[in-house]
Structure formats: structure tokens, C-alpha cells
């Protein structure tokens, strides 16, 4: 199967006060048509910057995409003009943001905003866009959409706003939807509803979905494949079941161990990962995870490991073979 989105060796740096913050430092991953890919990692591991880079929404200055290739449906997005990228945004690639409370314009009705991608990309009349928007709001199960489309965002709850954002992202039936922590700001009960809806609708339209999250529960439940990010790099990637059953990178193992388990001993203490994520402007030598890693050996300080094959569908970037050491 060919890939819909191919990111190769992407490097996005931010310049601040003379130092260079390597937010994304050599990331490569694929998204195939119709599949759901999760990107997991701690805050500041470069997940959001990766997503924004794909849409070329990095504020420049201070940010800059240094190098790499982002091939979407065969075209390198980094070589397109701003006008050409604008035709892709919201039309073929859509994005859902983390904060539903601030991602809708407070001075426009929800209906006008949800219909905006249609007005822009399909040159639809306002009336046409409005009708389509009501159908979309209906699809994301907003009750009484004809009335609610006239409401302003402040009259919506967080969950409803996020649903409106989903409706907006689906408006032009994009091939790829990037959801940047779509449920982090929502209540737990609403989280499940919103994710379920998102998954269902993308399955219906055949869109590929990239879910950026730090919630391994979300990953296990919704993703086909996982990319684990640490300090601006992908440290492990593979099928979801493979990663959960056979994690090869100490960081992935650490993430799993810091989750409570329903099937384990109740008295079993959680094992947090010691220390803090590194300063991206001043990375440690060798592997970025080495200062926090209990398996670290001399080699880890000397040279950063590259992604290598565990099996054809599973890559990990670590010098140590956990099966031997543990």
C-alpha cells in the first residue's frame, strides 16, 4: 500500500535568544490512506510542532523548517507556494486543535465557521455552505442543528465546540485529519464520545487520522500504528498491538509502567520515569533519553541510536536489547 503522507527527516527548529531549540529533529513517518496513526510523547516532545510543520503553520520567525521532505499524495508540501498550500489546508488536510474553548472565533456564529472551508474551497454560496454546514452539524450529533448553527461559540459547551470543530474539519472531506490532543481539554466522559465520533466519521469518509496524544489508552483503543516521540525524535514505531505487547525502547516501557493496570496487582506501585524531559536547546550527548534511562550503557553516551528494525513493521532506536538486559 502506498503512503498518503510521507514525512522524511523533518527538522523544525526555533530560534530564541541566540540559542536553537530543536523541537523536531529528524522525524520520519508514514500515514497510509484510511489508517489511524497515533503520535505519543510527553509535553514538549515535538508532537504539535510536527503536526504544524505538515500544514506549514510554523510561525516564522521564530520557527523554521530547516530540512526534510513532506510528501502528501505524491507532492512535496515544502516546495509548494503559500497559495498552493492554502488550497490543501482544510480541503485535503484538516486539523483539529487542542483547546475547543479558544479555537472558534467568538464573534462569528458556529454555522458560519463550520461552513467556512466550504465557502473557501468549493466556492459555494453562503446559502449552500449553510445547508451543508447544518448537515455536518447533524452528522456530529449536535441536537437541533438548524437552531444551533445560529448560536455563538460561547453558547456551546466544550464537547459541543469540539464536535463543531470536527464538523469543520470534515467539511471538505479531507484525505487526512490531524487531531492535536483533541480531547485533552474535555471531561473524561465527553472524551470517549468525541473520539468515538471522530473515529466513526473518518471510517465513513475513508480519511486517514493522525491522533496526537499523551494518553496511551486512546492509542490502544483507536490507533492502528503508533509513533513514540521523545525530545524531537521518533524513538519507536510500529503496529499498536506490537508496541504494547513487545515494547523495545526503554522510554516506551517507562510510559507503559507509569500507567495503572486493571488486570495487575492493586498494590503494585506505579513506576514513574525519573527526571525531566531534556532542554531542547541543550540536548545531552548521545541518546537524548540516556540520562533518564536505567539501561544506559557507555555506547548510549557516545552516539545517538538510529531507528533499526525489530521486525519489518516495528522499528526502535535503542542500542540496548531489552530482552537480553532485562
Amino acid at each position: 500500500m502506498t503512503s498518503l503522507l510521507e514525512v522524511r527527516n523533518l527538522k523544525t527548529y526555533f530560534h530564541s535568544d541566540g540559542s536553537v531549540v530543536k523541537a523536531v529533529d529528524g522525524v520520519s513517518f508514514d500515514v497510509r490512506a484510511g489508517e489511524t496513526v497515533a503520535v505519543v510523547g510527553e509535553s514538549g516532545s515535538g508532537k504539535t510542532v510536527t503536526a504544524l510543520s505538515v500544514l506549514r503553520l510554523i510561525p516564522d520567525p521564530p520557527g523554521e523548517i530547516i530540512s526534510g521532505e513532506i510528501r502528501f499524495a505524491g507532492r512535496d508540501l515544502l516546495s509548494l507556494s503559500e497559495a498552493e498550500v492554502r488550497k490543501i489546508r482544510g480541503n485535503r488536510i484538516a486539523m483539529i486543535f487542542q483547546e475547543p474553548m479558544t479555537s472558534l472565533n467568538p464573534s462569528l456564529t458556529v454555522g458560519r465557521q463550520v461552513g467556512e472551508p466550504i465557502e473557501i474551497h468549493q466556492r459555494a454560496s453562503r446559502k449552500n455552505a449553510w445547508d451543508k454546514c447544518i448537515a455536518l452539524l447533524h452528522k456530529v450529533r449536535i441536537p437541533d442543528p438548524e437552531q444551533r448553527a445560529n448560536a455563538y461559540p460561547y453558547q456551546f459547551s466544550g464537547g459541543m465546540r469540539q464536535r463543531a470543530m470536527i464538523a469543520m474539519s470534515l467539511a471538505c472531506e479531507p484525505e487526512l485529519i490531524i487531531a492535536d490532543e483533541p480531547t485533552t481539554a474535555l471531561d473524561v466522559t465527553v472524551q470517549a464520545q468525541v473520539l468515538h465520533l471522530l473515529k466513526e466519521l473518518t471510517r465513513e469518509t475513508g480519511a486517514a487520522l493522525v491522533i496526537i496524544t499523551h494518553d496511551l489508552g486512546v492509542v490502544a483503543r483507536y490507533a492502528d500504528r503508533v509513533n513514540v516521540m521523545y525530545a524531537g525524535r521518533i524513538v519507536e514505531t510500529g503496529q499498536t498491538s506490537e508496541i504494547f505487547n513487545n515494547p523495545k525502547h526503554p522510554y516506551t516501557v517507562g510510559l507503559m509502567n507509569s500507567l495503572p493496570r486493571l488486570d495487575g496487582d492493586v498494590r503494585f506501585a506505579l513506576q514513574p520515569i525519573e527526571g525531566h524531559p531534556p532542554d531542547l536547546a541543550n540536548l545531552p550527548s548521545g541518546c537524548a533519553f540516556q540520562p533518564r534511562c536505567q539501561y544506559a550503557v557507555d555506547r548510549c553516551l557516545a552516539k545517538p541510536p538510529e531507528l533499526s528494525e525489530v521486525n519489518p513493521e516495528h522499528l526502535a532506536a535503542c542500542w540496548v536489547d531489552l530482552n537480553v538486559t532485562a
Binding site: 500544514l55 503553520l57 492554502r86 488550497k87 490543501i88 489546508r89 482544510g90 480541503n91 484538516a94 486539523m95 486543535f97 487542542q98 483547546e99 479558544t102 479555537s103 472558534l104 472565533n105 467568538p106 467556512e116 472551508p117 473557501i120 474551497h121 470543530m165 469543520m168 474539519s169 467539511a171
Partner: peptide, 13 residues
């Protein structure tokens, strides 16, 4: 505000 970035992300000129 996020809504300005959101607008950019749907291709608003």
C-alpha cells in the same frame, strides 16, 4: 488566539 491559527489551518487567505 487559537481561532486565528485554526482559520489558517483551513486555508483562509
Amino acid at each position: 488566539n487559537d481561532y486565528v491559527r485554526a482559520a489558517e489551518s483551513i486555508g483562509v487567505s
